[in-house]
Amino acid sequence: MTREKVLEVKDLKKHFSAGKDKVIKAVDGITFDIYKGETFGLVGESGSGKSTAGRTIIRLYDATSGEVKFNGEDVHGRKSRDQLRKFNRKMQMIFQDPHSSLNPRMTVLDIIAEGIDVHKLAKNDAERKKRVEELLEVVGLNKEHATRFPHEFSGGQRQRIGIARALAVEPEFIIADEPISALDVSIQAQVVNLLKRLQRDRGLTYLFIAHDLSMVKYISDRIGVMYMGHLVELADSDELYENPVHPYTKSLLSAIPLPDPRYERERVRIAYDPTAHDTSEEPEFREIRPNHWVRCTSKEFEQYKKELEKK
């Protein structure tokens, strides 16, 4: 089965300078593809470069090196204004923080219509308004909300305004950076149901960055795990949960808190010791089982393989 690739990321790096001689290698060579219609979950340590990866993919940051292809076209190459505009329309981002990503002085109507205006998607004011009202309905709000301002909404409603804004330009691909972290569980469920429904109805593709592993597993087809600027493991979500190979992934899975006080009192976490790795060579991303990748040295590769076989 050959599936259509929407996004191809090859050895992408994004470094920041932190004072003289100091470099923060926020993203330090990540490689993965995202297929049409799938949800790719990105999890990992706080500060491991997930948001930076998302922001570099969508060109909010210039890459230090590496390649990002969207529908086969190089995203970071030189582009005309027109090409850029087309690209900006097809790829949209929902931001980590619903409180600060909406302009407090704009009405919901104008916030959502921003992209419609930029891309001239409406012929006149009436059509513009109609499109916004349709979008409000899609995300479970209503037309009366259009004239209000962001501070008049709860966190969950604001996040849905952000989603409506992203959808306004009919993107194919959405990068959602912790779209639900700030919401209560019931509203999280609403937003996740909404994202899934939109995916079904419109064939959308998602890059979903999050910390809540139960939710990530629920929503994602495949999951990548990041640690210190690298992807350390990538697999189908069930495979990743059932057969984690990299010690960081194991540690992450062992730390998921569950709403069960008795279990929490007795939980045993597996600590990750980053210094315990084999250092005889530079680790590489290797395929340990079909479609299951792990970053390791050749020695570790043999050892991980044996562990997997024993299972």
Binding site: S186, I187, A189, N193
Partner: peptide
Amino acid sequence: WGLLGSMPTPDSTDEELYAIPGTP
């Protein structure tokens, strides 16, 4: 009850997650 019911369990599959209906 609604709050506890909204969480996905570690093996929740494709069915819709339960969400408390209505608005605050």
